[in-house]
Every structure is written in C-alpha cells, then in structure tokens.
Design a protein around this nucleic acid. Structure first.
Length: 841
RNA sequence: GCCGGAGUGGCGGAAUUGGCAUACGCGAUCGACUCAAAAUCGAUUGCCCUUGCGGGCUUGUGGGUUCGAGUCCCACCUCCGGCACCA
C-alpha cells in the first residue's frame, strides 16, 4: 500500500460475505434424524420476536436483530449448535386498513413488505437459517393455527359465549382486554365502547395459577416483565360470601378480600350490567330510574367511567339483602363503580374501611360503621379516623370483638363455611382471552354452524375436520368491516356443508386475533415444512425451550403471556414436553431521536436502509449495540454513527498495514518485552473483558469499547512494533486479528474479512478466543497510596509484594511524607495489590 | 394512589466484591499533513482557585455506617415505565 490511501469500503466486503453465507447455507442447522444433524454439540435456540411486516424495517428492528445475531454468533463460537430462524407475523390490521384505503389486496402489500424485510435482513448480514422461514398468513402456516384452535376447542379451552366486550368503532372489531389502553383502542386510539356480542374466547383464566407459579421455572427474565405479568394476572385471596335477598328470593355471592370487615357492611351494590338487576326492580317504583341509570352508564366510554376523580353515582333499588354475619337488612344499590368483569359483579360495601365505599356512603347519607380499631391519617377523612384500611383489634363485631382482625378473618370465613354461606376464594383480574375479530385479514376460525345438528333452535357449533383444513380465506371485493366480518360477504364461501350431517351449514365468519398466530410460531420453526403435523414431536423436544428470546418490552404482557399459555395448553394436550416457551428473555430498549419516540408525524424517523447504504451494515449494527446498554433505550445521533464508522475504518486500515508489513504466523507465547509484551497483554485483556461483559447481561457497549481500546493501543504501538524484531509484527498481527474476532458478532462482514486476510479461514468456525490468565496479571500494579482516605500518590509495585513491602513503599513516598509530617499514624490499611491507606491524627 | 427502574462531565455512557470517579465514543480546542478544505495522524479536554508549581471541590439533595461510599443504610426531590374505582 505504502503511499496509497486505504479506504474502508463496506459495500464490497459485505456483498462478498453475504454471498458466501447464501451459497454455503452457513447458518442452516438440521433436526435430529436428518442428514447433517450434529449431536455432538449442545443446542441453543436464539430467537428474536418475529417482525410484523408493514412497510420497511425500522431502526427498532435493526436493534433487535443486531442484538440477537450477536448472541447467536457468540453461542456458535462457544460450541453450540445454534438454531436462529426468521419469519413474519403477517396477518393483521395495518395491511387490511391499507386495503380499505387503496383497494390493494392485503396479501399484495404484505408480500411486498416481506420482500423488503428479507432483502434488508440479508443486507444486514443477519445469520438466519433461511430454510426455516415462515409467514403466518400462508395457508401452510394457518392451517396449523386452525388445528390448534380446534384442539383447544375439543379440550373446552376455546368457547363461544355472549358477553359484554370492548368494541372499537373505528376498526369495527372487538378487542382483547389487553388491547384496550386507557379506554382506547391500542391500535387507532379511538375510545372503545362496550357491546354485548357472541364471541370466541380462550380459557386462559384456567391457567392463571400456573402462569404465576411457573415464573419459578424461568431461568432469567427481567424482573419488571414478571412484575407486569403478575400485576396483570392480579391474583387476590379472599372469600366468597353469599348475601340473600328475601324479596324476590335471590342469592348474591360477593367476593371480598376483607371478610374481617363483614360486620361493617352497611349497604350492597350491583354493577349496572348485573344480570339480575332488572329482575329486582321490575314493576317497582325504582324501575324507571334504574333503567335510565343503566342506559346512561352504558353510553359512557370505558375511559369516562374509569376516570380518576369521578364522583360516585348510583340508584337505590328499594330492595335489601341480609348480611349473613349478623342478620341485618342492608339496602341495595346499582352503582357504576362496581365492575361486572371483576368478582361477581356485586359487592358488600364497608364504608368504615374502604375509601370508595366511604365516598358512596357520604353521597347517599348511608351509615359508616367502625369494626376495626385504628386510624391511618393518610387516608382518614372524618373525625372518627375513618375510613381505616389497616389492621387492628375488632370492634362492633359481636363475639369477634377484641381479636386481631387477621385472626378474625380466618375465624369468620371458617364459620361462614360451616354454615354454607361462604368459603375462601381466589379471584383474578385476568379475563379470558377474546380471540375473534370481525375482520378480514386473519386466520378464519375453523367451525361451521349447523341448524339441523343444533337443539332448541340454536345452531350447533361443528368443528371443521382435520382433513378439510385449512379453511382458506375467501377472496372478497370489499375489505371494509360492516359491523360484521367482511368474510360474511363471501356468500358462496359462507354457505357450506355440515361435516357432521351433510346438510346446509354456515361458516364462522370471524377471524382470529393475530396474537394467536404469534403464540406458537417458535414451535413451527422447528419443523416448518411439515405437511402432516404442526410439528414433529422429536424436533420440538430437541430444540425447545427457546434458550434466549429477544424483543421489545412492549410485548411484556400480551404476546409473552399468550405464548406461555399456549405452551402450557399444548403441553397438557400432549403435544409438547415443556411448560415454558422462553427460558431467558432479553428486552431491548427503544431507540429515540431528539429525545422523542420516532414517528412519521413527528418527522424524526430513522430509516436504517439509508445508513446501511451510506456507512454499511457493520457500522449500523455496531452503532446500535454501542449506543448504551442494549436493554436501555438510547438516542440516535448521526455523529455517533460516524464515530463507530470511524472505528471500523480505523480497524480496516490497521488490517491493511498489518497484512502488508507482517507475515502470518503464531504469536510467540514465550517471553516478550517492551511494546510487544504490552500489546499482547492488551489483547488478552480485551478478550477477557469482552467475554465477561458479553456474558454479563449482553453489555455490548463495553464489549465494543474494549475492542476500541485494543485498536487504539495497536495504533499507538504499531510503529515501534513494525520497526523492531519480527516478534513485534507477529504480536501486531495477533492483536489486529483478535480485534476482528471480537468485533465479529457485531460487524460480521468486516470481522470475517480481516480474519481471512490475516489468519486465513473463517472466523465463525473459530472458537471464541480465550484469555491466558497468566497474561492478565500485569508486570507491576499501581499502588494507590491514601492518607486519611485521600489519594496522595501512585507507585508502581510488584504484584506479589507483601503487606510490609507495600507499607514501606508507601511511607517512602515523598508526597506522602508531606502529609505525615508531625502527625501520628494511628491506623494502616493495606489491600494487597491495590492500596495503602494511612490514617493519621 | 400502588408496583417497578433510573439520576455520574457540554452529550451518550464506564466504574466487576465498598478501594485510582469520569473507560470508550461524541463534541470542542490545538498541532502535523495540505495552496486550502475534507479525510487521516497526534495532543489537550470534569469544575473552581493559581502565571506556574500546586491546592481545593465533584456522582440528584440531606443525613448515617466505614480507614475508605457513585456503590451499603435512612429520609427526601426529580424523571421514566407499568397498573389503576380490581371489592
């Protein structure tokens, strides 16, 4: 090279290696029993959440796959057989909304977007096993989504019922509870309204306890994700207690976490949606007012009703129930602070010890009764110190008076249980998963309705038999929902034959929530071309669970909980041998720009393709890993990208010079001195640091900074090394190749190229380098000398020096002597190899 | 309100077990190269006082433990995320 300038041109390097990986199918792995299966290696399943293909990949995708790919490479080079597949979560609303707007069929836009993702994943050099690629919108895939649905149906885990559900008027579909955020549709932000509709549900509530208990089976999940799921499931222990209404004769069970306050119940409230409500008031003077109230509440949005400082409202029913602990008649109300979705839709109100009941009692002039001694000034409103939510001795509670409320709690429940009027109970906030959608672009729910097979004028639900799957999406003209699924318009498709009796029947026209598709894709990757079964049991057995899952924290509740539920249900069905799908979870933080979340409307989006074009994929990938700890967010800056590009270019130029001026060969592992000794030690330090930080929670930012230090030192020492003996050149070559080897998981093209030039062969076939522990100990250590805890001198010392030697060294320091002058040393602290602290008076 | 997480230079961040605070990168300043610029290479860069030598201060705030605290304990402030009339 000599005078000619060496320029880092990533385009050529990247194209070269991408071609190698494609031609040689480098990242493909075989299943047990297939040719090429390597049973000598332990397996590792590294998986990033599959992308939703809408438009072009954005910078969040780049980060997710850059992080996952680094992990995959690291594991491969630690001797693992790594399975690292990719697919597309390709059903869903955006493609359909686009279709409504433009008339372009959703499959066309979806497949165009998939092509763009495929191209960019290849341009980014992500090490994907392309032989396992899948897309959830293809009949080959959703055939098995439908099969799983039917398995759940047979087991009673999928069911159809009429229930009040959240309806998004804009998207004209129902939503799962999890998809309603602050009373608004998660996707479009429209306020949702409640409707009573016939819908399909998955019985996830049956798994609530196991979803909680099995957090213990996970190896490593971020604590906050577990906490969020735990809160979402919302398990409360308490009691179910029956309050009897004598006129009309009806039993009203309630759930309470405070059976110890039963003697303080002074009224009783029902949710406006309570099924027995109208029966209670029919033909009474209260009927009119109650009906109006219920209608008014029904018109309100979930957001209005859930508003924080909302004043309590309600209407007396003119009826009463009997408190089972003391026989008192207490008045009944309908009140909208009672939620039909939680507990039994009815509650016993204890205004003395619950602030909401207290507020209601105040408004309606109802009695407030103290049954537990004590006061909490933080919440107490009145002079009596009520309401009081805390613990204390019982009062006003008959024979329980004087006992601690915790003790009374158990006794009251036992007593009610013996009388058959109550029992301990557990309640969950978690609701069953509403999976039907009145939309086009999803997997059809594979059932038909047959009048002939039904009874009492209701049609029978008949599952579509396995050999008739998939139930393929029909083509339609108009994708716009009309309050019912657009599939309903495909009349030829809807009209079918009953698989049971052969008579005329109608297909279900709802499709499945796309979260159903993504709840099992990680299993399909293991056997993606299987036309006979959803997966081969042996393949699933071998690869599962996912050893490392990587994705955005926004899926902490929805996707991750649904996938856990599916895994457990499929295990119960005998189709899987694991209880948890994802042993380790890593959630990457969001990249912002100018301190704000990227959005088209704000105009602060980053198109990764542009940066890949300008600086190369290696720079873009390394940058997102270097910005900060990957689990945290970070702000994208062009200067930062340039800095990383500068570093890679610097490494590239170093390689060029080393290639020209040194010869390939082993590093002398014997005695070295001077810069050769120093740089060899630095290389081993970098190996050690990079390896530990990689393992310690994927701290890629410091892994990369260690490689930067190695490159910086190589520059600093290279002229000396090249001018000196041959060993110097060998060490420089070793240091440069080591830098390439360590940076490979982030910048795979450059890493591969430099390794090939300097050492020959494929870097990904090399074991991850190991630091020689003997070289990690320096020739000297810097002894910190403190006087009264303040740094006064640094002295180079022998790492093996004894405490006495170190003390003598410290006392011999002139700088230290100034501070000891005329003072008495009262204490000497010596930490061998580190510091001496002299305490003087 | 409840439950998490975080506060370190001009900026992103580092600091492994309680032991050199500010690694690495960005930005800035200066120098070399150049007619010049860019690129590159090298140097400097926490704050304050000081011509210099040198000294003092510094990890959101206040206290504590310790020979020694960014790190541990107590109280508080601020920001971010999640949940929120859940009986």
């Amino acid at each position: 090279m000599s005078e000619e300038r060496v320029i880092y041109e990533p385009k050529a390097i990247e194209a070269k290696w991408q071609q190698v990986w494609a031609d040689e199918r480098t990242w493909e792995v075989a299943n047990p029993g297939q040719p090429g299966f390597d049973d000598s290696k332990p397996k590792s399943y590294v998986l990033e959440m599959l992308p939703y293909p809408s438009g072009e990949p954005h910078v969040g995708h780049l980060k997710c796959y850059a992080v996952g790919d680094a992990i995959a490479h690291f594991r491969r080079r630690h001797g693992f057989e790594v399975i690292h597949p990719m697919g597309y979560d390709s059903f869903g609303l955006p493609a359909e909304n686009n279709a409504i707007k433009t008339g372009e069929p959703p499959q066309v836009a979806t497949e165009r977007s998939i092509a763009s993702f495929q191209r960019q994943f290849r341009e980014w050099g992500i090490s994907i096993d392309w032989s396992r690629e899948l897309a959830t919108h293809t009949p080959e895939y959703y055939r098995w989504t439908q099969w799983i649905f039917l398995q759940l149906f047979e087991k009673g885990l999928a069911y159809r019922t009429e229930a009040p559900v959240q309806w998004c008027p804009k998207d004209a579909t129902v939503l799962a509870n999890e998809q309603v955020v602050d009373g608004r549709c998660e996707r479009c932000g429209t306020e949702v309204v409640q409707r009573k509709l016939w819908q399909w549900f998955f019985r996830i509530t049956e798994y609530a306890d196991r979803l909680l208990a099995d957090f213990d089976r996970l190896e490593s999940w971020p604590e906050h994700v577990i906490t969020m799921q735990r809160n979402w499931i919302g398990r409360s222990e308490g009691a179910e207690v029956v309050f009897r209404c004598e006129e009309p004769e009806l039993d009203f069970p309630v759930f309470t976490t405070r059976p110890d306050t039963l003697f303080g119940a002074t009224f009783f409230a029902l949710a406006p949606e309570h099924p027995e409500l109208m029966r209670l008031v029919e033909g009474t003077p209260a009927e009119e007012e109650v009906r109006e109230y219920v209608n008014r509440v029904g018109r309100e949005s979930a957001e209005e009703r859930g508003a924080e400082d909302r004043e309590k409202t309600g209407v007396p029913l003119g009826r009463s129930v009997v408190n089972p602990v003391n026989g008192e008649q207490i008045p009944m109300f309908v009140a909208d602070y009672v939620l039909m979705e939680y507990g039994t839709g009815a509650l016993m109100a204890v205004p003395g010890h619950d602030s909401r009941d207290y507020a209601f009692a105040q408004k309606f002039g109802l009695p407030v009764k103290r049954v537990i001694e004590g006061s909490d000034p933080e919440v107490a409103i009145d002079d009596e110190g009520l309401p009081y939510p805390g613990d204390g001795p019982m009062t006003g509670s008959g024979r329980f008076d004087g006992k601690g409320n915790r003790e009374a709690y158990t006794e009251i429940v036992d007593w009610l249980a013996s009388e058959g009027r109550g029992e301990t109970a557990v309640n969950f906030r978690l609701r069953d998963w509403l999976v039907s959608r009145q939309r086009y672009w999803g997997a059809p729910i594979p059932v038909v309705y047959c009048d002939a097979c039904g009874e009492d004028g209701t049609a029978a639900i008949v599952p579509v038999p396995d050999d008739q799957l998939p139930v393929e999406l029909p083509e339609v003209e108009d994708y716009a929902p009309q309050g019912k699924s657009p599939l309903a318009a495909a009349e030829d498709w809807v009209a079918t034959e009953c698989p049971r009796c052969g008579g005329p029947a109608r297909r279900e026209t709802d499709t499945m929530d796309t979260f159903v598709d993504s709840s099992w894709y990680f299993i399909r990757y293991l056997d993606p071309r299987n036309g006979e079964a959803a997966w081969d049991r042996a393949a699933a057995e071998h690869w599962l669970p996912v050893d490392q899952y990587i994705g955005g924290v926004e899926h902490a509740i929805l996707h991750l909980m649904y996938a856990r539920f599916f895994t457990k249900a499929l295990a119960d069905l005998g189709s899987l041998g694991v209880q948890e799908p994802f042993a380790n979870l890593f959630t990457q933080g969001m990249i912002t720009r100018d301190g704000a979340k990227m959005s088209k409307s704000r105009g602060n989006t980053v198109n990764p393709g542009e940066y890949v074009e300008r600086y190369g994929a290696d720079t873009a990938r390394t940058y997102v890993c270097f910005m900060g700890p990957p689990e945290r967010g970070g702000d994208w800056t062009d200067e930062g990208v340039e800095g990383v590009n500068r570093f890679l270019a610097r490494l590239w130029r170093l390689c060029a010079e080393v290639e020209e001026k040194t010869v390939a060969g082993e590093v002398p592992d014997g005695e070295l001195d001077g810069p050769a000794r120093e740089l060899r030690a630095k290389a081993h330090w970098a190996i050690d640091k990079a390896t530990r930080d990689f393992q310690r929670g994927f701290q890629f930012n410091t892994v990369i900074s260690a490689v930067m230090e190695l490159v910086n030192d190589s520059y600093r020492l290279k002229d000396d090394l090249l001018a000196g003996r041959a060993e110097g050149g060998a060490v420089l070559r070793f240091a440069t190749a080591t830098a390439a080897s360590l940076v490979f998981p982030f910048a795979p093209h450059l890493g591969a190229e430099i390794w090939e030039r300097l050492q020959g062969g494929r870097v990904w076939e090399q074991s991850w380098p190991e630091a020689d522990p003997a070289l990690l100990v320096g020739d000297t250590v810097t002894l910190i000398v403190q006087v009264n805890g303040k740094l006064r001198d640094r002295i180079e010392a022998d790492p093996e020096a004894s405490k006495e030697d170190l003390l003598a060294l410290a006392r011999a320091s002139e700088k230290v002597a100034n501070y000891l002058d005329g003072k008495e040393v009262v204490k000497e602290i010596v930490v061998p190899g580190k510091l001496v602290n002299l305490v003087v008076r």
